[in-house]
Design a protein around this nucleic acid. Structure first.
Length: 202
DNA sequence: CGGTTTTGACCCGCGC
DNA sequence: GCGCGGGTCAAAACCG
């Protein structure tokens, strides 16, 4: 499969910054790294046009599978994460940005099975937001899909929560005795953008 | 027939 | 409190 290249490539590698459980430090470092002083009012990681902290622009929807996999790490809106922790919710939130020239249906197909359960108009945006829930039993991962108001060429996909099961269509490992719980290290590279890695007791 | 989408109604947290 | 906006429910429609 051939995906278009990122129109705004960056060679920045945040690998060393991403450690579980020290999100605040991580966030500060990223902001320093991309030279963004005023991050408190507009927490955008890599694209200033959005009010959301975007984990990465992706060119392959399958990349989001790993990010919401059972061993994913936290990145997302700082206040939102704190709020979710207060409410004892899984704090994981990812926002991915996809060029809409990629077929929207392809962007939706991230390897997991989803059930759409809502659609709402958003104030200040001419585009509605779509609500989806993972169809796997007892899995509470949700995702929201909306067009970036400031940049309608892009679609923002927000993931919340960690899947309690591997992706039905993505192979993580071809080992026979593969065990999710014993997989403590993983990494993935987004095409032409950032690479993430994770090592945590999961 | 089983699962998904559609859609308006409902719910609820938050700011005033 | 109360109202607004965002999030969810659920019944009916839809679809392979």
């Amino acid at each position: 499969m051939n995906y278009p290249s990122n129109p705004n490539p960056s060679s920045t590698d945040f690998t060393e910054f991403f450690k579980f459980d020290d999100f605040d430090d991580t966030f500060e470092k990223i902001m320093e790294e991309i030279g963004r002083e005023d991050h408190s009012s507009s927490p955008t990681l890599s694209w200033s046009s959005s009010e959301k902290l975007v984990a990465a622009e992706i060119t392959s929807p399958l990349q989001t599978s790993l990010a919401t996999s059972p061993m994913s790490f936290e990145i997302g809106d700082k206040d939102e994460i704190k709020k979710r922790k207060r409410h004892k919710e899984d704090p994981i939130i990812h926002v991915f940005k996809t060029k809409s020239s990629i077929d929207e249906k392809v962007a939706l197909d991230d390897g997991y099975k989803w059930r759409k359960y809502g659609k709402k108009p958003i104030t200040g945006s001419p585009f509605p937001r779509h609500y989806h829930k993972c169809s796997s039993p007892d899995c509470n991962v949700k995702k929201k899909i909306e067009r970036d108001t400031n940049n309608p060429d892009y679609i923002l996909t927000t993931y919340e929560g960690r899947h309690n099961h591997p992706s039905p269509s993505v192979v993580y490992c071809d080992s026979d005795d593969f065990d999710l719980n014993s997989l403590n290290n993983w990494s993935f590279q987004t095409a032409n953008t950032y690479s993430f890695s994770h090592s945590a007791p999961y």
